[in-house]
Design a protein around this nucleic acid. Structure first.
Lengths: 339, 339
DNA sequence: CGGCAATGATAAACCGGTCTAGTGAACGGA
DNA sequence: TCCGTTCACTAGACCGGTTTATCATTGCCG
């Protein structure tokens, strides 16, 4: 038989299509005996729902959309995305929800994709990452009236849930640690300045610097690429009164920075301490290995997916979920200052 | 108005639903004047196709499926997947084809996903990666009668297209290069032995060793993780008559191996040359930087996607597309042997 | 025992497209 | 002038589910 349908089940079980639909979806309207019989027949002929037919009736598409708007070049290297993706996946697939993925150039394109996915009813919800300051996507998502979860920015997004980590506390812990080690000239090689998490980190550094009376704490912005990470490091190390410690917003940039220090004959950690604001094998493989702010990115993905399924189940119940704060894992790239 | 449908267009344009369908799909049956009028109305009311409704009529889902069956742990780090994904994406999105992505634990689960996606008509085609020796997925895909493209294994898969690189030639070029530098004891830290590309590389090494009369050329299998890459390196360097050159199947393992060499006081490249069978920023960031077999993985993804769209357009026309052979990029991790 | 509600089931409408059979008009050739 | 063909378009079935209106039974209560 070519692809069994509920009509086939109905015929074989001697009931109507409607009864089959009720039985298969676990809703009232059929007796337990009939339900069991229908389920048995469905099993027998190996019936599977036709997702399109379901979606047509206005029902769910059983899919969630994720659009990543970063240049492919940086994307390929960042371990962050792949791990986040794995986590999202794990949770979604346990709920039989598929992930629609798209990689685009910019936010304009991203918004366009959102519009078409929603109007084509391809997805039931959207996962937004890399939240920007005054992010235009929030308004679009609200206007489209589709459940959404923002990954990486704290709450207050109206009907949109959010899942985020306390970057501020993490940055403060790193700066305090460096201060205890005697560092006073601390620099920060950050990511794109329009990202909210970048701003939170830069601000935390400034605040800590003021409180701890550290001069010249400054943030240099980059596009997250290893090239710009290296360039920023070169600039920092070449100037007068160069920093004795640098905090990088990603492990990739930290590794690139470490390379520059080696090139320039600056000893790590004796002359320069390095902290990576993201941990992965990368940070552990280098020599010296990198002290890092570590968190379970996979788990972060799982939590984001859970927030998504929660808001899918009840769109009125959005939540603002703060996850584990990245913990400082000390390795070989940090040490007390010499004096 | 709540979500315009073709019925709305038909009403406003004063024609039938059928005419609208013909006009929107660029097929004969309407005059140019009417077609233009219909398109204008569709534009006006901002109509978008309802993908589910289309798919229901047996038409295309405009989506392609990709299932990755590797442990999340290794996945997160390999730059390879992210770059391949970007390439696939770029091509698919230019054709307005969405990508259905799923990450699973093993091939059994992968096959199960294929079955449900196909029977739920979620995808029009499948992209298979990490081809194994006597891969059970080939038979499943043929049985499901769904267009498919195999990434990474050469042809002869019946109705399935394939896109692959000449691992053998690449391995031979690396071994010959090492031989010219005077190396005779060459080892290979490979990936999972059940993968076809692993086997092709191992066999190429054996053949080259025989031809060039190199003793002890051997392959050590790993699971692609940095941990096993490091372990294999340790084993190789600890033994008597240790190799003077090691070829790693991925840049991640090469970096891990480099770390082990440093730990054990084996100088690279003076006492040990290292070649990575995969290139990325990772290989360039280390010190010394790694000589690598490089290819444009992004482009590889694009080509795979093109093979997919070709076979979607005409399922009878499968092709066996050999892509660019990885070229050896020499960097600092290889040098002539000392004697 | 009559009336009413709850239960189990059915038939048919519906979702938004695609596609086929059919219709009417215009046109061309003999 | 008449028939056959082509063209432009329409009406309606159809895809595979969900959902609603309806109906027959049964059970309960006063």
């Amino acid at each position: 038989m070519q692809r069994p349908t509920i009509a086939d089940i109905a015929r074989r079980a001697g009931v109507s299509k409607g009864a089959v639909s009720f039985a298969l979806n676990g809703r009232p309207g059929v007796s337990e005996a009939t339900r069991a019989r229908i389920l048995r027949v469905a099993e027998e002929i190996n019936w599977r729902p036709h997702s399109a037919a379901r979606a047509l009736g206005g029902a769910r598409a059983d899919a969630v959309g994720l659009v990543i708007a970063r240049p492919a070049r940086t994307l390929g290297v960042e371990p962050f995305f792949a791990r986040l993706l794995s986590g999202l996946q794990a949770e979604f697939s346990s709920q039989s929800i598929a992930l629609h993925l798209m990689i685009v150039e910019d936010t304009r394109a991203e918004i366009e994709i959102y519009r078409s996915w929603v109007s084509e009813r391809r997805v039931d919800g959207l996962v937004l990452i890399d939240l920007k300051v005054r992010d235009p996507r929030i308004a679009v998502v609200e206007q489209l009236k589709i459940p959404a979860v923002v990954v990486g920015g704290p709450g207050r997004h109206g009907r949109v849930s959010s899942v985020w980590a306390d970057d501020r506390a993490a940055m403060l812990s790193a700066v305090e640690y460096l201060a205890v080690l005697g560092h006073t000239r601390i620099a920060h090689v950050s990511g794109l300045p329009e990202f909210q998490h970048t701003q939170r980190r830069s601000r935390a550094l400034r605040d800590a610097a003021t409180r701890l009376k550290l001069p010249r704490a400054r943030s240099l912005h980059t596009d997250f690429s290893d090239a710009q990470g290296a360039a920023a490091t070169r600039k920092l190390l070449a100037g007068a009164g160069r920093p004795t410690a640098i905090i990088y917003d990603s492990d990739l940039m930290a590794v690139a920075g470490l390379g520059v220090a080696l090139e320039m004959g600056v000893a790590v950690p004796h002359e320069l301490s390095i902290i990576s604001f993201d941990d992965s094998v990368l940070a552990q493989l280098t020599h010296p290995s990198l002290t890092a702010l570590s968190r379970d990115t996979y788990r972060f993905g799982v939590q984001a997916a859970q927030a998504m399924t929660a808001v899918l189940a009840d769109p009125t119940k959005t939540k603002n979920h703060k996850t584990e704060t990245p913990r400082l894992i000390t390795r070989e790239s940090t040490s007390p200052t010499r004096n």
